[in-house]
Amino acid sequence: MRIRLEGHDLPGQRAGERAHALRLAGVHVGVQRKASAELLVPAWAPSAVWELEVTAREVDGLLDVGGPWVHGRPGARFLYVTWGNLSGDTFAMFRRAKLMFGDVPTATLRAAYEGALLVGSLGLTDEHGDPVCARVRPAWSVA
């Protein structure tokens, strides 16, 4: 199953001290694959787009996703969008956002399972101007 995450409103794009501090600290955002953040994008980029492949199977009439990008136990699977400071080749994670597959409308997830592209659109800045974290609910659709 193919997934495209489309991140907009990155915190380093904004004006002000917080955005400036993110740029100075080399803050990047990526998607967590197993224990490491990959596909890193600077926090000051105009947008972030990640393309992922996950596995999916039907279990007792329900869809279960898996693979190295997917975390959590059956029935509570999710993706992590991970924030950290990048210095050379070292990424020091300091914050994550959790995107729950349970928040994807059933018909949308089913369409992706049957071959459509699952698209999640999400803002990457919270109400305080910081990198978004905790549970995030993207707008899910298929393309």
Rank of each mutant, 00 (worst) to 15 (best):
M1Q: 07
M1I: 08
I3W: 00
R4L: 11
R4N: 05
L5C: 08
E6L: 14
G7T: 05
G7L: 10
P11L: 05
P11T: 06
G12R: 03
G12E: 04
A15T: 13
G16F: 08
G16A: 04
G16M: 04
E17W: 10
A21T: 11
A21S: 09
L22F: 13
L22T: 08
L22Y: 15
R23S: 04
L24A: 13
A25S: 14
V27A: 07
V29Q: 02
V31F: 00
Q32W: 01
R33P: 08
R33Q: 13
K34C: 13
A35G: 07
A35V: 15
S36Q: 15
S36W: 04
E38S: 14
L40G: 08
L40Y: 01
V41N: 01
P42G: 05
P42R: 09
P42A: 13
A45D: 11
P46T: 12
S47V: 02
A48Q: 07
V49S: 14
W50Q: 05
W50P: 02
W50R: 05
E51M: 08
E51Y: 07
L52Q: 03
L52F: 09
E53Y: 01
V54W: 04
T55Q: 11
T55S: 15
A56L: 04
R57V: 13
R57L: 12
E58V: 15
E58L: 13
V59Q: 11
V59K: 09
V59W: 03
V59C: 10
D60N: 14
D60G: 09
L62Y: 07
L63M: 06
V65E: 02
P68M: 03
P68S: 13
P68L: 11
W69R: 04
W69M: 12
H71R: 09
G72K: 07
P74E: 02
P74L: 09
G75F: 02
A76E: 12
A76P: 00
R77V: 09
R77D: 08
R77F: 03
R77S: 10
R77Q: 15
V81Y: 00
T82P: 00
W83N: 07
G84F: 01
N85V: 14
S87I: 10
D89A: 15
D89K: 11
F91L: 10
M93E: 15
F94W: 06
R95S: 15
R96S: 11
A97H: 00
K98H: 06
F101A: 07
F101H: 05
F101R: 07
G102A: 15
V104H: 03
P105R: 09
P105Y: 06
P105Q: 05
A107D: 11
T108V: 15
T108I: 15
L109M: 09
L109N: 02
L109A: 14
R110F: 01
A111R: 14
G115R: 02
L118R: 01
S121I: 03
L122D: 04
L122W: 00
L122K: 03
G123K: 00
L124A: 01
D126F: 05
E127H: 11
G129V: 06
G129P: 06
D130G: 06
D130F: 11
D130T: 07
P131H: 00
V132E: 08
C133V: 09
C133L: 08
A134C: 11
A134L: 10
V136N: 06
R137D: 07
P138R: 04
A139G: 09
A139T: 14
A139R: 13
W140Y: 10
W140G: 10
W140F: 13
S141Y: 00
S141W: 00
S141D: 08
A143N: 10
A143G: 14
